[in-house]
Design a binder for these strands. Structure first.
Length: 486
RNA sequence: GCUGCUAUAGUGUAGACCGGCCAAUCAUGCGAGCCUCUCACGCUCGCGACAGGGGUUCGAAUCCCCUUAGCAGCACCA
């Protein structure tokens, strides 16, 4: 506990100051459980998390499941799992579907205060009146009448579409979207997966209720919520509650991956994608599968910050963050794509000792036995190449006869290879390699890698001169790896 | 259309509230070199931006206006 308090000054300030945060903050991350979390969610989650760590305080995870149409029962677990992976300092979790009676109660209070009314107009009718800035007939009802109608909503005398609760705002507000917006509605179907209910609060009401009840002091969210913030202020004013500090960051464009939950679901059901962690998707689980570390995601999001300008997300920057984390830990191995089987004449048996990590000799080496024939990447052999060095082994002279190369041993000296400006390439003993497929969102490379890679299941390794990759599967038929980045 | 918000290098970001210390920061990217038995890491050097136009001022990236561009909202979604 004391550690948590003293902790707050140890964090380097990476984000701009928040006003009124000196004595600690209470913040929240409030996803809708409609699918797994993606990079867009990570921004809100990481930013709020960083501020809580910077100032100290509570970090609430609030599951906003008040629209049964947009709730996927599986998503509760997926969201929890994704958040655990991200490694946030969540201090408590609440689920809105558990709290309906709280909202009902506050609604009654608001009606009693004259801040809300039950509207039985049909939609089109109300919209016309709203556009015109005129009050609908229901607006002038007495408190007693409204309370009666509210009761009829709750006991299901009214059916879906027949009544709703509206917040009294300012009908002369220049923005029609602000005028008497709805706070509760009736939904006969579908049933909510977690509670039996037919009266649901709309987001603006439940959010205000919970932000107040939970003591939220600062809200950081996308600028798509600016209008909601203005609407919510009316509710705060009716109740006389203190309004949190708001920050709205700009839109973040993300290219190259699918982010829309409905599109992802469609693709998964249709067999286009293998699952929520298909590497062509922008979900956190897809990033994880590709070998992106949660720290890299968080760091990239903090670097982006809370600016209110629209930005485009840079994969390069994320990869750079990830490389900082992964490079010191990833063991090195050879992966030979599109292998060419090559006999090397005149070479005695050799044993190569290649370092598992060039910066950490203590990790040891892997040994590769040369017995005469090796696998080398086809792309390294083109007419004109006269000499190569098989890394950590020896030099090879390449002779060309009518476009056909032949290979002969050409000495052990690294200095010779350097002097001849020979390329130092990765290779594998032909008698001791494992088939390996390296997949990236752009396509796949087939080839082979060192047998030791089997032991790196779920780890990120570096295939020398190719790039980092996460070992996703290893079985009798070979290894499947996902390309992370160079 | 209406109501708002925003514009700094390829990308992200600092500076803007409190004009001069900004011929503009840092990261990433790109280029050159060094190091290195990887095209990784590390190191050195370099490239590259205040959207445009007016105004206020001794002085503007910073304040004001206009233009242009982008974005958000205008749902009984969150």
């Amino acid at each position: 506990m004391f550690d948590a308090l003293s902790d707050r000054h140890e964090h380097k300030k990476v984000l701009p100051d928040l006003e009124k945060a000196e004595n600690g903050v209470v913040m929240r991350f409030a996803p809708n459980p409609s699918g797994p979390l993606h990079i867009g969610h990570a921004r809100a989650a990481a930013l709020n998390d960083a501020y809580v760590k910077q100032y100290g305080g509570r970090y609430i995870l609030r599951i906003e499941d008040t629209d049964p149409k947009r709730v996927d029962p599986d998503a509760y677990g997926m969201v929890a799992g994704d958040l655990k992976w991200l490694g946030l300092g969540i201090t408590e979790t609440v689920t809105q579907s558990d709290r309906l009676s709280l909202y009902y109660d506050l609604c009654r209070q608001l009606i009693e205060k004259g801040g809300a009314y039950v509207c039985t107009c049909n939609n089109e009718r109300f919209r016309e009146l709203k556009q015109a800035g005129t009050a609908c007939p229901c607006r002038g009802q007495t408190v007693a009448k409204n309370l009666g109608l509210w009761q009829k909503m709750l006991d299901h005398t009214f059916r879906e579409g027949e009544a709703s609760v509206r917040i009294k705002t300012d009908l002369s507000n220049p923005d029609p979207a602000m005028r008497d917006f709805p706070a509760f509605r009736i939904l006969d179907l579908p049933p909510h997966p977690k509670v039996k209910a037919h009266v649901y609060p709309l987001m603006n009401f439940s959010v205000v209720a919970d932000d107040h009840l939970l003591g939220v002091t600062h809200v950081i969210r996308g600028k798509d919520h600016i209008a909601n913030t203005r609407r919510q202020r009316y509710i705060y004013d009716h109740f006389g509650w203190k309004v949190p500090v708001y920050r709205h960051y700009g839109r973040m464009g993300i290219e190259g991956v699918v982010l829309s939950t409905s599109q992802m679901r469609l693709g998964i059901n249709g067999g286009t994608y293998t699952g929520w962690d298909d590497i062509r998707l922008g979900t956190l689980r897809a990033l994880a599968r590709r070998g992106i570390s949660p720290e890299a995601v968080k760091n990239a999001m903090l670097a982006i910050g809370i600016g209110d300008t629209d930005i485009s997300f840079s994969w390069d920057n994320l990869y750079a963050e990830n490389r900082k984390i992964v490079d010191p830990v990833a063991n090195r191995y050879f992966f030979v794509s599109d292998p060419l089987r090559v006999r090397i004449e005149g070479a005695a048996r050799h044993t190569a000792h290649a370092m598992l990590h060039p910066g950490d000799a203590a990790r040891g080496t892997r040994t590769l036995e040369f017995e005469g024939t090796v696998l080398i990447p086809k792309s390294e052999i083109s007419e004109g190449v006269a000499m190569l060095r098989l890394k950590d082994l020896f030099n090879v002279r390449v002779a060309w006869d009518n476009g056909t190369p032949s290979f002969t041993f050409s000495g052990d000296s690294l200095a010779d290879a350097r002097a001849a400006r020979a390329r130092i390439i990765q290779w594998l003993p032909a008698q001791d390699s494992v088939p390996c497929t390296l997949l990236s969102p752009e396509g796949e490379m087939t080839g082979a890698c060192e047998p030791l890679v089997r032991k790196e299941l779920n780890n990120v390794v570096q295939f020398e001169r190719v790039g980092f990759a996460r070992i996703d599967a290893a079985n009798a038929s070979g290894i499947r790896a996902y390309f992370t980045h160079k």
